[in-house]
Design a binder for these strands. Structure first.
Lengths: 194, 194
DNA sequence: GGCCTTTGTCAACATTGATGACAAGCGTAA
DNA sequence: TTACGCTTGTCATCAATGTTGACAAAGGCC
């Protein structure tokens, strides 16, 4: 017997271990949220010691922020015609979870909302919403109070997202998506029109 | 010396201790949120042993749910005329923090949002929104999709509230309240009109 | 005075995020 | 090869958390 009977893990390049931790964390955080998921659970799923998680990501919070990043490029329809943009945006948002990256983004955004107790998380959430929703719109809107109106649209979209994926309002989840798109889209349009 | 040199606290009726804990918890939870506030911090602020907190409220989560209850009676303007109700509701929501109970309600609602990782909290949040926003509206709306429309209005109001008090969008916080009321109110009205 | 419920106190428990020491692998240079 | 140094993995440990149970003492009721 050598000094340590338990088989030591064969050495791996740091990138492999890191991405294993990343994937495990993304899944677990997305499902259960920040505080329900412990570092040891992430480590176990990644097949790794808990201390390695901290070594690679610095802290649980940084791991969370890094994995729950929503990397959505600005919504494309915001470059299109202003006519009917309200419905187009809402349709885009409602149908997001049907694509792979969209589902990840929605999950991440919801997780950020639910963990926004922490200052750093709140800051990330704020800049994310600003970059994805508000800023692309400000440049397109005409008429008075353009900036405020763009941020109010962002509030509307955030409200729809949180109602469906944070609060999980059963009425909205069961509703016909086309009705939601038409009704809510028109309400959004009201803020787009000058 | 008797067996215990430190002066024991004079006995108090349970209601007094309980309400001291309640007040301390309400303040701390409202300021910093669920996980930033420990039981021992609440106990210290109430001048009480940590074990008493559990004895009186069962668990930290139950204490949180009990103190972060929003006891807003249904919004009064929802009983008024449908004409201009959108602006009236938004004005009510925007001006809530100016009253004592309103400020407590907003703080509690925001805290519930931020702690909605936990199933029990999410359930409370859902029924609260349903009772305060959606249900009173369903009875008033005419035309098709009344229930969905009412819940979409609730989503709008939730979005405005979270943008201001959870995300804390600086643009909205700095904006002229009258502009917000007028613009967002009209968008809400769009969902009220049949 | 005895008895029982209520109120307060304290020590402990398991679990959490995080740290630091140490061992082992692997390449490079002398 | 040997020696050094950097990287990777493992472990023991720390302080803090929510929660529990045992125990002390106060006060009301017979």
């Amino acid at each position: 017997m050598s000094t340590r009977p338990s088989a030591a893990k064969p050495r791996q390049p740091a990138a492999v271990t890191r991405s294993a931790i990343f994937d495990a964390a993304r899944e677990l955080f997305g499902e259960a949220g920040f505080d329900a998921v412990g570092i040891r659970a992430v480590a176990a799923r990644a097949g790794v010691d808990a201390a390695l998680v901290i070594r690679h990501f610095g802290s649980k919070e940084r791991l969370f922020l890094e994995t729950m990043t929503v990397d959505l490029p600005a919504i494309q329809v915001m470059e299109g015609p202003l006519d009917g943009m309200g419905r187009a945006i809402v349709e885009h948002v409602v149908c997001l979870p049907s694509t792979r990256t969209g589902a990840l983004a929605v999950t991440a955004l919801a997780a950020l909302f639910r963990a926004s107790d922490r200052d750093e998380v709140r800051r990330t959430l704020r800049t994310t919403i600003d970059e994805v929703f508000a800023r692309p719109l400000v440049r397109r809107l005409t008429g008075g109070d353009a900036e405020v109106r763009a941020h109010l649209v962002a509030a509307q979209l955030g409200g729809l997202l949180t109602s469906m994926h944070v609060v999980r309002d059963p009425v909205l989840l069961a509703a016909d998506p086309q009705v939601v798109v038409a009704r809510y889209g028109d309400a959004v349009q009201r803020l787009i029109d000058p």
